[in-house]
Design a protein around this nucleic acid. Structure first.
Lengths: 140, 140
DNA sequence: GGTATAAATAGAAATCATTTCTCTTTAACA
DNA sequence: TGTTAAAGAGAAATGATTTCTATTTATACC
């Protein structure tokens, strides 16, 4: 998936294609890892694109809402996002704890857990989030 | 599992059994739902046990480290904890979005995902976290 | 039971990531 | 090209969480 696909997704979500949004998407494509707001601002500034930190936060939020980015939970409890290459599918992400690479895991066998809960706890499962960590092929 | 078991766990983790730690554990046992630091402080104060907010944060952290509590991810990004009734086992927690009840899910079929990642991404899976949300038997 | 000691707690203060606000600029439509 | 609602800048506020220091207390040992 290249940048243009994401720009189409912006359109679909009634988000204007602006230099800043485009730059953020391209940054994620280029880096291939999860990034935080401050870091994003610094990198873009190096490339002569000034962005206010509040704008970065807002852009990241909008891109997440559009399914372009996914939140990454970090021990330090700060906000990080990774690029989501296959939106609208039942999948998860594998995060390398060393190089921060985010990879799609096009697999989800959640039905077992779901059935277990419905049978044993008599609850209604509505959603689940999963974060898988480890070492990517290059780092292991 | 009653309070005494948790107190033994404190000992095992070289944590002293103090009135505040005991009170926090008993509060989780009584409430059966996830709780935040501020809320905990308010409830304990009502019961004439004054606790400083920094102490609450520290106690919660220690209890999590001892495996007595588990962190609950919340949309508002604040810290919440739930009681973990079966420590040291491969299990997850089912959280009711309405009443905040936390239930043990003594089931985990993670091997499928793990194998998928090792085979397709050539990565080494080290850990995973999962949060399952929905409505409990009483709320659905 | 009394005491020494390291651990635990209180309370004030600091931190700092995130959000809010207001004004200015701009993308996208006709 | 002009219009307009959306997007962005920058300053300022917010408030959850953490840090720091002085005081208290649980516990091990006698």
């Amino acid at each position: 998936m290249d940048a243009n696909n994401y720009l189409i997704t912006l359109k679909e979500n009634h988000l204007k294609i602006t230099p800043r949004r485009r730059a953020v998407i391209e940054l994620f494509l280029k880096e291939g890892r999860y990034l935080g707001p401050y870091e994003i601002r610094v990198i873009l500034k190096k490339r002569s694109l000034k962005v206010g930190l509040p704008s970065v936060y807002r852009i990241l939020e909008e891109l997440e809402e559009a399914g372009i980015l996914v939140k990454v939970e970090h021990k330090n409890r700060q906000i990080y996002y990774g690029l989501c290459k296959k939106p609208h599918q039942d999948h998860h992400h594998f995060i390398c704890r060393k190089c921060k690479k985010v990879e799609e895991v096009e697999y989800c066998n959640f039905t077992g857990v779901s059935e277990f809960i419905e049978k044993n706890l008599c609850g209604k499962v509505e959603s689940h989030t999963m974060q898988i960590e480890g070492l990517c092929s290059a780092c292991k």
